[in-house]
Design a protein around this nucleic acid. Structure first.
Lengths: 177, 177
DNA sequence: GCCTATACTATACACAATGTATAGACGCAA
DNA sequence: TTGCGTCTATACATTGTGTATAGTATAGGC
């Protein structure tokens, strides 16, 4: 019953839906990991994360940057929520995929850290550590998992974005607007 | 390669490790869903969630209740983090398991809601809606997924608990301590 | 026209994992 | 002793992955 387990993400099912042979999928993507990677890449493009993230850097204040970051990721996760969820769950169980997903998330964390270092006040070790801690908290708040949990309760993307911006600003130690 | 996929959670592997036949596992647990349910139940008992949750209700203030709730769940998730993660990922991909995990989470949300209604000031619709929204946010913050994301960054249980209490109080609209 | 690379198909096989069926062994308690 | 609950042994059907291999179709360069 790995049919139910993989939840229609079997290579056979994908091939059938695409109107091609299973062998074609192997030819094009090498296997399941490659296939899921390709799907994820496609979602990333359509989720406009590449366009929206740079905008967060150009905001005039840290608060505006945080709001833009949260909104960009919320839009991204919302774009193909159920597919992203499935890919992440499958990826977490497959060592090969877990690695590449891990490096994706790592890049996300680095992007967030870059924002914080930009507005970081001091250069002391404590200031750096504080910035790192804040970035990690915002990273957690902008993770797919958090978005998914909130969306599962019937909240709209707009509501979730607003709540997460509220929390992210709190994490950054700012006023709660 | 569902061997790698199931990541040593195959019935065969479990049976071998337990020094028992595969058939015995089927006899005792019915199949994979039943097995994972039993494991989850066992973790819940050892995670002392049954003892710690009621304590949260007995706190003198909402703030203390929230702190106790966050601490109770952090302790629970930390108790068997890697196993819980695997079970939840597998469960999310299996319709049969997804349902029972969903009802577990539902009970968690109800427990949180109960805390908020206890301290809810008004009885108006808006007050009720506000309490519900807060409970849902705290629910998200106390989810395993959030804990796991933070723990993946090398944070200790104590650090995570502290940060999440900070965020949870912010979500409740209290002072950030 | 010919050749070649690319994309895809058709079969076939080995392997792992789930799940079902069935018959039997073992111990223990009424 | 008889019956029941627990567990084993064996066999089988099914589904999914992954690999190998031979073959088809088509478009582009020569």
């Amino acid at each position: 019953m790995e049919a139910g387990g993989s939840a229609e993400f079997s290579i056979d099912a994908v091939a059938r839906e695409a109107g091609v042979t299973r062998m074609t999928v192997y030819y094009q993507f090498g296997g399941k990991p490659g296939l899921l990677e390709a799907i994820y890449d496609d979602i990333a493009v359509r989720g406009e994360i590449g366009e929206r993230l740079p905008l967060a850097f150009q905001q005039p204040t840290l608060e505006a940057s945080i709001d833009a970051l949260v909104a960009a990721f919320a839009y991204f996760w919302a774009s193909e929520r159920s597919i992203i969820r499935r890919i992440r769950h499958i990826g977490a169980l497959d060592p090969e995929l877990a690695q590449s997903h891990g490096s994706r998330d790592q890049r996300r964390l680095e992007a967030l850290s870059a924002v914080f270092t930009r507005w970081s006040t001091g250069r002391s070790q404590r200031a750096t550590a504080r910035a790192k801690r804040k970035a990690e908290l915002i990273y957690a708040l902008t993770s797919f998992e958090v978005y998914d949990v909130l969306a599962s309760q019937g909240r709209s993307e707009a509501e979730i974005t607003k709540d997460l911006q509220h929390l992210a600003r709190a994490a950054a130690g700012l006023s709660t607007g």
